[in-house]
């Protein structure tokens, strides 16, 4: 049985200039302990797909979602608000792209992590210890001291670690990481990827990684889905897709990756040629 099974997912946005379909009927699944990546360019629908998994998108009429999102065999798309709250954070946790804006500036990071723990495990006696352990797990030195820090007192990399600690504190079954390293510089990116890798190795949880960076995918994921204009155009094992892409868009996307010692000019994606797809 799959942990997550998405069937015929369609996401529409109504704007003043009419409707746009951001996701046009996609199907995919994630197994227990499996790690899956969704790649695609900006606007391909990968982030809204991730947001729709716990209905984080704006409510209708702005945005309407149809299709089935089966998580542990219950349909998230049809769930009532209170059952949904028990899944958010507890079963499916998120890490977002911009750690600096994703944390509330007026509360200490310790409080913000503790809030998640209190919401889902109200019977916990020593919440503080759980939080400090979570901070320590993501490699924050002096977790006792950092508990009382405000987000603005931490660097971007540290803030993202706090976000990861918050996501992990409730031991979720699925971690959704929406471009977790895009806002960080390269050395910090590497640290965050290594951290996610080691957490997964230790805990064994499923991961859905949203990214446009092929380098991260091969490090972290087993399977990859390529999204283009709201559709999944190709999917398969990471190594297969990266080494032997079938779809012209995937080929074009992989053709854009610079490599060390490369002498050929990078090819921009020719959308005219892809237009018919």
């Amino acid at each position: 049985m799959n942990l997550l099974d998405v069937q015929n997912l369609r996401i529409k946005f109504s704007t003043r200039r009419g409707e746009t379909e951001a996701v046009k009927g996609i199907d995919f699944c994630i197994g227990e302990n499996e790690s899956v990546a969704i790649v695609g360019e900006s606007g391909s629908g990968k982030t809204v797909t991730a947001m729709s998994l716990t209905r984080l998108l704006p409510p209708p009429p702005v945005c309407s979602v149809s299709g089935k999102i089966l998580f542990e065999n219950s349909d998230v798309a049809a769930m009532d608000e209170s059952s949904l709250r028990k899944i958010r954070g507890r079963k499916i946790a998120y890490i977002f792209q911009e750690p600096s804006t994703s944390l509330n500036p007026v509360f200490t990071v310790g409080y913000q992590i503790a809030e998640a723990v209190r919401l889902h495990f109200p019977e916990t006696e020593d919440v503080r210890k759980v939080v400090v352990d979570a901070l320590a797990e993501v490699g924050i030195r002096n977790p006792e001291l950092r508990y009382k820090s405000y987000p603005h007192e931490l660097s971007g990399g540290m803030q993202q670690r706090v976000m990861i600690a918050m996501a992990l504190a409730c031991k979720p079954n699925l971690l959704v990481a929406d471009e977790p390293t895009t806002a960080l510089d390269v050395t910090i990116q590497k640290q965050i990827i290594d951290l996610l890798k080691s957490v997964r190795a230790r805990r064994g949880m499923s991961l859905l990684l949203i990214t446009h960076n092929f380098g991260i995918i091969s490090e972290l994921c087993e399977r990859v889905l390529v999204m283009f204009r709201g559709k999944i155009v190709e999917q398969g094992r990471c190594a297969d897709v990266l080494n032997n892409p079938q779809h012209p868009y995937t080929k074009a996307l992989i053709g854009c990756i610079p490599r060390l010692g490369m002498t050929k000019k990078l090819e921009p994606i020719d959308y005219e040629k892809l237009g018919a797809i």
Binding site: T54, L56, E81, R85, K86, I87, R88, G89, R90, A93, Y94, F96, E98, T101, S102, L103, N104, P105, V106, F107, Q112, E115, A116, L119, H120, M163, M166, A167, C170
Partner: peptide, 25 residues
């Protein structure tokens, strides 16, 4: 703001998101 989405994503109810997270800001 982004922190509102974080609060919803970690399981806060509407009231908590509004009265605790938003109003203080």
């Amino acid at each position: 703001r982004g922190y509102v989405r974080t609060a919803v994503a970690k399981g806060c109810g509407k009231g908590r998101v509004y009265f605790v997270h938003i109003l203080r800001n």
